[in-house]
Amino acid sequence: MSKQRKATPRARLAMLTYHALMLAISAIFLLPFYWMTISAFKTNAEIFSDPVTWLPDPIRWENVTSLLTRDDFPFVQQFLNSVFYAGTVALLVCLSCSLAAYSFGCLRWRGRNLVFGLTICALLMPTIVTFLPVYLAWSKIGLTGSYWPLITPFLFGDAFFIFMLRQFFMGVPRELLDAARLDGASEFRIWWQIVMPQLRTPLIIVGLFATVYTWNEFFMPLIYLQDREAFPLSVGLFTFQSQRAVEWSVSMMGAFLTALPMIVLFLFTQRLFQRGLSSTGLK
């Protein structure tokens, strides 16, 4: 420590170089997002102006109101749909995956390793492999056009989140569970009253991840939903953009406002994201 303090001018120079480098890299990563944001506050003509303008001048705040009042892009409704979709999936994932993760992480039973191995296989399987039959089955029972096909699978669990949660469940001390068992607590009670409250943070982490993934999920809702009023934002944005005469500023505003809630969420919870991903080293 004292050695470092002596070398202050050099350390300071190193620090400056470091931040200059990091800011330069940040600029590259920010560019697409920045371009989307400024385009959202320009008119169509200004987006494509020559020479390029790097700041919207004037800032077209009216783009916000014009987006929110359109008939052919029910933004508010689709926003609520996204909240419902992501929220439901996050809740279901926390519940269903913690059941399986408790079993894999805290309980010993024959066949456990086999079932967990299969879970990893399921995690590795490309969605498209299983997609066609599932899609046809939902069609046959007449539930396409609703959120059922999008949400029901999470009632049973999800390989990735089970995997993630299991890493945390494995950290619960065995002695704690054994003590509860000696007291005569049922396994269900141990799970619900002892383990779940202890794993509050991991559960929130998994819920956050589920929220972000679902918010940006595109393929499944595109295929299953059949009504503009029912689309989540990810799909609404796409069908709006694919119209013949493209209104760039409106769709950029749409994209900006779609991404904004997730960015705010990330800003405030990034430590939790970090912790969730720290647990994923494959063992």
């Binding site: 059941l99 079932v115 009632l155 049973f156 396994e187």
Partner: peptide
């Protein structure tokens, strides 16, 4: 404990069968 293990994993085993294993065969 073994019974409980199976019991807790059961929803996921069912889910995996319905949404992964069967569709894969189909």
């Amino acid at each position: 404990e073994a019974r409980a293990g199976l019991f807790f994993a059961l929803p996921w085993i069912i889910g995996m069968t319905i949404f992964v294993a069967l569709p894969l065969i189909v």
